[in-house]
Design a protein around this nucleic acid. Structure first.
Lengths: 106, 106
DNA sequence: AATTTGCGAAACTGAATAGTTGCATATATA
DNA sequence: TATATATGCAACTATTCAGTTTCGCAAATT
């Protein structure tokens, strides 16, 4: 099953889960309490996030704590980089245009 | 139909289309030539990208030129910002640890 | 030892979706 | 005016996927 990080963050619920476990580890039950859905559906999302290597699992007794693998999020940042270059260039160009207009006024 | 930019970039083919039209406007036919798929399937993807306000259309005679709305990509960057803060903080902390080790060696 | 609790996994259902085929429309060209 | 070209759109199919239900296992509690 071809699944990557972009598919992982495509689902709004998964993005919400990511936000929840970004700063603290949480069990599936604790995560599910934040939604209207069942624990099993959260479990499924966690499985997908695990497949994409977006989360860490830590077993403690019969509980499993999930937390965000923040490094993995950098992959999105890296992909975005090529476009960031474009919009920053365009902004610079706009800046230049504004500067030219300003100078003409003088 | 609930569709947002995260769903738009979830599909690898759509990311490829985005990359293609990021720097130059292209017609659906010209885009389709870069893939093994049909023109219609590209048209469908372009429709989705249009719905998500990720592309501009410019009609020229019977041709329609599509280009990337680069500003829209910033939305991803803004969403990523909260996580960037986290990984930068962690990096600083690591930096601090390394510094401490360094100082101890002296 | 029996029961409860936390969890994952399989089977099922309904909805969404990617791709194809076929068609309609508008513009260009002969 | 007849034909070719560029495109969008609707109908159909096969696949994917989110959520539920049910089950089984292992750890905690009684």
């Amino acid at each position: 099953m071809r699944r990557d990080i972009f598919q992982a963050i495509a689902d709004p619920k998964r993005r919400a889960i990511i936000a929840l476990i970004a700063l603290q580890s949480m069990t599936p039950n604790a995560i599910a309490e934040n939604f209207k859905t069942s624990r099993q559906s959260i479990s499924k999302h966690l499985r997908i996030l695990t497949e994409c290597e977006l989360v860490n699992q830590e077993q403690q007794g019969r509980e499993i704590y999930y937390s965000l693998k923040i490094e993995k999020m950098k992959e999105i940042d890296e992909w975005l980089e090529q476009y960031r270059k474009i919009w920053e260039t365009r902004f610079d160009q706009l800046d230049e245009v504004l500067l030219t207009i300003k100078n003409k006024k003088k």
